[in-house]
Design a protein around this nucleic acid. Structure first.
Lengths: 341, 341
DNA sequence: TGTTTTTCCGTAAACGTTTACGAGAACACA
DNA sequence: TGTGTTCTCGTAAACGTTTACGGAAAAACA
């Protein structure tokens, strides 16, 4: 069916070696023959067989993204990743790379699936998300010498891999600053219960800002829950039961905020009126919620594109002539002021 | 690095042919040697090279999912697909198949990307979602003789491919029945502006139920918008401006409902109090919104698993000895009654 | 004209599998 | 003992590429 390099060679009455060289832009082929090969390739609708190429080159030409579903009893997923994947895939496609997604069961730490991807060499590199503070996936990959990049930072693995993260620490501090400026002193923080690194960073920024404003840190105002609606719903009442309840709450993401607001509403507390609410990672949900929630907006699709670039730049086989290099970036989170605080 | 079939052969001092046959469970190999091969494979941590296998077998061992981002100016994606993909990938993995995702730009009809996947044979089959009433992707694939399955139905392509869909028509009718039973006669319907088939099915059920109850169809109560928050927000005021405004609105999905409720709230109309709201495809958002939105819940992860089965069953190379067959199913949508209607 | 360099291309091996074919050994049967 | 059958395994080709190597022809140079 599909035409091969042999078909082209036969058609042009030259050898397959020459055809291959012409197609791959090598120097040792006559400009005229190259043109004839290119024309014939277009005419015969030729496209290289990936299996043959992969076998010969020892690379699969695909990148695996380990998609982590929500932990907890959650049927729906994280819309966060879709635009990120859009950017990632678009950039990879420019280099002829496929994006394959590997999903774990909820709560599963992906270690097993990751090992399978690496050992069976299904991909040339992997992209990890939702990095943990100590991340065994990163330890494993660095130790195995397998190329990878992460969306998010971690304490594992040192600086040996490319990573792109958002500045959750600054966002946490900015949120506190803003609330303090509006007269709040009792500010609660609600974050994921897992050791997801952005939860730590957020809390670090929160505490630092509190200290700067001379406000004592109160453990009663901090709570951890599943990073979804159920988590926010379950955990928000805890901070409200404090002896001196908060007048403001910072949620780590939109789903937790939604659940939290539901819990507040059930006790007659109106977000935006009776209590201030800020969300760290903004989504359309924040924009269209009533009241519209103040939040910090990430540039997800550009992040996907950028991480693809960074990953490719770190792999000798894909990096240009300038050689491989490790890039690590932290992008700002832009505050979008709305009606909830 | 990774051990090959040659390593096994050398290690056991037998030929690679025998190793391959032993691994593939063929009959003409001594039970004893087979066991030795299996043991050695485990010991040497052998796993077959996919490129080599694919090249020889003429199959890629991967399935492409065409992920369609939202049209319109939407940075976030459809969480709907994540659990579906989870099920799909899990089932495919059982057969040693990879899931590769191909994303289009928003608004892009995927025709170009699809053509590339097919022509370069990057996958053995594709899975389509968000089927349109007349779907050129389906026409193209059937005409090209390329295996595929769809999440959703279409008028294109006849019955020649497996498809799994939800019963949007029944859900639309059920929603009307429920609202009529609660005394409503002016019921609005808000659906996607594109020719997405589930929008048609929903409206068909809506109109049928209206007729059954002797209620005249009023075009002023139907509006189309982008299938996201912005769409619902933009379009809901239109139906409210009707000379005889609706006392109930059925939204096609949660994002449109969120946007619509925002628009209502801005004019002082409280969903669940002043107007009834039902959402066709339920999500956690519906559950945690205030008021909690009545909706129809799909079983997304099982749907992913089932569609994988159906796709595999339709492909001779993957179907068991019973031979390939085309399965088409329509799954029910279960109503979850909550506080908004 | 003779020698060296350059340009261009063909040959063949290699990547890791699968599988058709055939052959040797063991066995059964007459 | 001779013939036929069954088990088991090795050999080698094939899938579609890429690329090291070498050689013929053309070009450049003395």
């Amino acid at each position: 069916m599909a035409s091969s390099i042999h078909d082209l060679a036969r058609h042009l009455n030259i050898s397959i070696g020459t055809v291959s060289r012409a197609l791959n832009g090598r120097a040792d082929v006559n400009a005229d023959t190259r043109q004839r090969v290119l024309d014939a390739a277009k005419k015969l609708n030729y496209s290289p067989n990936q299996s043959g190429r992969s076998l010969r080159r020892g690379a699969t030409h695909s990148i695996a993204f380990m998609l982590q579903p929500h932990p907890g009893d959650q049927e729906y997923g994280e819309p966060f990743f879709i635009p990120f994947l859009t950017g990632l895939q678009a950039k990879l496609a420019e280099s002829g790379l496929d994006l394959i997604v590997v999903m774990g069961a909820p709560g599963d730490y992906q270690q097993e699936r990751l090992r399978r991807v690496v050992e069976t060499r299904r991909a040339d590199a992997v992209v990890l998300a939702w990095t943990r503070r100590e991340d065994e996936r990163i330890d494993y990959l660095t130790q195995a010498g397998f190329p990878f990049a992460t969306l998010g930072r971690s304490r594992s693995g040192g600086d040996s891999y490319p990573s792109l993260d958002l500045d959750f620490e600054k966002a946490g501090a900015d949120a506190v600053d803003r609330l303090v400026a509006r007269g709040h002193r009792r500010i609660a923080a609600i974050r994921p219960s897992l050791d997801l690194n952005f939860g730590y960073l957020f809390l670090a920024g929160y505490r630092k800002a509190l200290r700067r404003h001379g406000i004592e840190f109160d453990p009663e105002l901090v709570a951890d829950g599943f990073i979804n609606e159920a988590g926010g719903y379950a955990v928000t009442p805890k901070v409200m039961r404090s002896k001196d309840p908060p007048t403001a709450i910072i949620f780590n993401n939109d789903a937790m905020a939604l659940g939290g607001c539901k819990a507040l509403a059930e006790t007659g507390i109106r977000p935006g009126h009776d209590i201030a609410v800020i969300v760290i990672v903004d989504t359309p949900l924040c924009r269209y919620f009533s009241p519209a929630l103040t939040g910090f907006r990430p540039a997800l699709e550009p992040m996907g594109e950028r991480l693809a670039e960074m990953l490719l730049a770190s792999i000798p086989a894909f990096a240009g002539p300038e050689g491989a290099r490790i890039i690590r970036e932290v992008w700002p989170l832009e505050l979008i002021a709305r009606d909830s605080d």
